[in-house]
Amino acid sequence: MPFELGRPLGAPNDPEFQLDVLRSALALLERESGPVLEDYPHDAPASGGEPWACPVALPGGEAGGQEARLLREIDLLRPWYEEASRTRGRSAVGLSGIGDVDTMGSFIAGFVSGEPGTPPDGASEEMPFLLRFISDDLKAFYQEAATAQPGRASTSEALNDWLYKETTLGEVLYDLRDRLAASEDPREKATSGGLIPLTYAQRP
């Protein structure tokens, strides 16, 4: 399966292609001798439709405090996140146990700015591991919202470029990583490595 990491069956929302990948893998069981090592012969199909763009224009810029800008982004993305959840019948948000995304945003921005980091109500983990799951939840919230609009050809590269290079959330995640990396607490230092992919390790 020569597809990018995270997409072992090739392309989302393409059941025919996914089924072909699965049938091809299962067909290997019919070989009479082994070992069998064989590449799937097709690359993942390119998404059709219009080029991807975030459904809403995020304010950008440096005006206002970081927490206020983050909450403003969350507010603008919320209708599209809810639309994504409605049409898909599910969401990947929820690892942190904190039901309210505004609370997650305020908590993570507050921690970055030096607040002590008392876990909000409902938190499913202790600090500092909670930070990892909040960051996963916020990334999922943003990227599910960003892919809610049908007919847009999103790629993982476009969605990650947008998140890490263009949003206040990306800025907050870099700040969080740097704060944790500078910590003398080994658990915080270890958590710093679970926030930003290696591909985006360098702050834009």
Binding site: G6, G194, P197
Partner: peptide, 23 residues
């Protein structure tokens, strides 16, 4: 839910369609 510790793989496909990782 997915709580894999690595951030070095794409999650946007899974967010859109579980079958891409768990068919």
């Amino acid at each position: 839910a997915m709580s894999h510790v690595s951030v070095n793989f794409d999650r946007t496909g899974y967010q859109q369609d579980v079958n891409i990782a768990f068919p």
